[in-house]
Design a protein around this nucleic acid. Sequence first.
DNA 1: AATTTATATTCGCATAAGCGAATGGATATT
DNA 2: AATATCCATTCGCTTATGCGAATATAAATT
Lengths: 111, 111
Amino acid sequence: MRVNLDELELLHSKVCRSVGDVRRLQLLYALEAGSLPVNTLVGILDVPQPTVSRHLSILRQNGLLKTERSGTQIFYSLCDPRIIGILDNMRQVLHEMVEHQSGQLDNPPIE
Amino acid sequence: MRVNLDELELLHSKVCRSVGDVRRLQLLYALEAGSLPVNTLVGILDVPQPTVSRHLSILRQNGLLKTERSGTQIFYSLCDPRIIGILDNMRQVLHEMVEHQSGQLDNPPIE
DNA sequence: AATTTATATTCGCATAAGCGAATGGATATT
DNA sequence: AATATCCATTCGCTTATGCGAATATAAATT
């Protein structure tokens, strides 16, 4: 399938934005080991169910999560587990950056 | 330096959100090969200078870019080039996901 | 069919984010 | 010191995002 570069760039930014929320990041990591139903995720994040459903919906719409129903429950899982590996890489680099005080948050401007 | 996990998680999401904008993504890639002054970046992105400055400021505040003045110009550069490698990994995975039609954007809900 | 459980969606609201136009500040040049 | 260049910031505005409460839907159970 042919993929336009601009479309890929837009997808790239959308996916990054999707991950750019603490709760959604937590949801992705919670699903690292395998699929889980919504109520379990509600327990893990300890936030209201509609909030979890909304974030799950965003992650699904952006192609990061997929769903499968089992009875009344709906299990969410990662579309591609490699995403977690990438997030881990980023986290590791950020950890080192903060540790070494270089490339610090709130980098001072020129003057 | 000791790094709190929650703080790292918050930083992680903030950095992802920073990258989650097409123009900021373009700025990061524009700086892949080395530092560039603002007016050059304005030419590359072809958007008003204040817009570029605002996005550069956000990337700097979140620890992704650093600055150095040379005369009247201010050169921006990546704090850590590894970030580009990570973004490339993600882009590659997204490319494959779209190509293979699995984990597609706008994944259909259960019903 | 009524009830229960699990999940999604709607609603109203508050805050955040992005934009262009205009303005301000710093440095270099004359 | 006046001017020009380069960049940052402010302002007013519009749109997007995130939230909790309430409501709707779907499947299973009785």
